[in-house]
Design a protein around this nucleic acid. Structure first.
Lengths: 221, 221
DNA sequence: TCATAAACGATAGTATTACTACTATATTTA
DNA sequence: TAAATATAGTAGTAATACTATCGTTTATGA
């Protein structure tokens, strides 16, 4: 995986102009990741992004109609990339339960290593996903965004993991609920640990969140 | 509970002027609940609220500095009220496991009956909590809001339920994580069921979410 | 009952945000 | 070398999120 260059392709419905097709487009992506990470999504504006990239605001609008679309693009990129990681990390492993362990590690821990195979900083992007990705679907126009495929990459990942769960326990009635609960829960708990620790039980243990969700899942199966 | 009039008191840090102290204040609360329910929090503005209440925007600013503060007020009201409900519903019940069952019912199901003891429509408010309450803490100024006690009522509820869990299994290391996962998870799954059903496993069963989280919890304990 | 404060209405104004439109120029590429 | 394509640059608009000021009514308590 480390030395593999994987081209991440994003559905053309999710941008106005493909940012991967030009220099400015790539600068928009890499700078937006830094800026959203730094400011949070609310404070992030195309004007500020324009200043950072030394390009006028209007040029950015040629790639994305608005900042919400850009966030959807980034999350789609992340989940597409995450699916590759999951496939590579679990391929050739016989035991479904071991595959589930590996998967839960990948899904519940923020990324710490940037594989550096593109203009995307995966560490910062992972941070954005953990703290901002709910904002992609918690919006008035979820349904329209959904019909355009905005959440397809995420659903694909959830579905893939649900299949592993069904391998372990074919009669299990809630595979999708369980895995979406774990993913969203891990994001929440990470956020809580930093801002509202009373809602968690985290000692110094770096892996507490992962351990918690692994126990939760395997106890349920 | 039905005929009991409980005065819900909200910490004075959470408003500029107490909406419970005047007619306009009460109108602001009841109208804002209707309007946020109807429009979603993003589309909701003080200008629109002013039109609905037949009061100028500036009068609303006397009660709340901005719409985010108003949302925090509403969620605090909800969790304070929910705590009363939990206490009344579980008092005098010997078995901690039965108390936990009752509690999980209350926490994972949207409110369907408005007890009508105040100017607050609890059905609509519950809807707002399920779909908008994450926005109270997913913001750049969480830490400042937290220091002002914006999330105290929520934490109190989580803590109360955590105590029930510890009665059942005193050695359980994750009581707060488990209960905050359940509350946020139930909100999410409700939202998913309406907008992104591929992330859930809901048949026609009205109680699927509640059943799922009850099984999840009791399997873990 | 009279002074005073509290509550609210009404109007105006500002900075920022989220765009849209249009023109000019530089660079590919066919 | 003409025509696309890509980007820069400028301007302008409507809505949002406030802030400020002033006048009138209503309540209250000394």
């Amino acid at each position: 995986m480390k030395d593999l260059h994987i081209p991440i392709e994003i559905d053309s419905e999710l941008y106005t102009k493909n940012p991967d097709s030009s220099e400015l487009g790539k600068k928009i992506i890499s700078n937006s990741i830094e800026l959203i990470y730094e400011l949070g999504f609310e404070q992030f504006t195309f004007k500020k992004l324009g200043l950072k990239t030394n390009s006028p605001e209007s040029s950015i609008y040629r790639y994305f109609n608005n900042k919400h679309r850009l966030l959807i693009y980034l999350t789609s990129w992340y989940w597409t990339w995450m699916e590759y990681k999951l496939v590579f990390a679990t391929t050739n492993i016989e035991s479904p339960s071991e595959r589930l362990h590996i998967t839960l590690d990948l899904l519940t821990k923020p990324v710490l290593i940037d594989n550096d195979f593109s203009y995307v900083n995966e560490i910062l992007l992972s941070g954005i996903i953990f703290s901002e990705s709910i904002k992609t679907y918690h919006t008035k126009n979820v349904d329209e965004a959904n019909s355009k495929g905005s959440y397809t990459a995420y659903k694909t990942v959830v579905n893939r993991v649900a299949q592993i769960i069904l391998e372990i326990k074919p009669s299990f009635p809630y595979p999708h609920m369980l895995i979406s609960t774990v993913i969203e829960g891990a994001h929440h708990q990470k956020y809580f640990s930093e801002h509202l620790p009373e809602l968690t039980d985290l000692a110094e243990d770096r892996n507490a969140i992962t351990n918690f969700y692994k126990e939760l899942v395997f106890n349920f199966l």
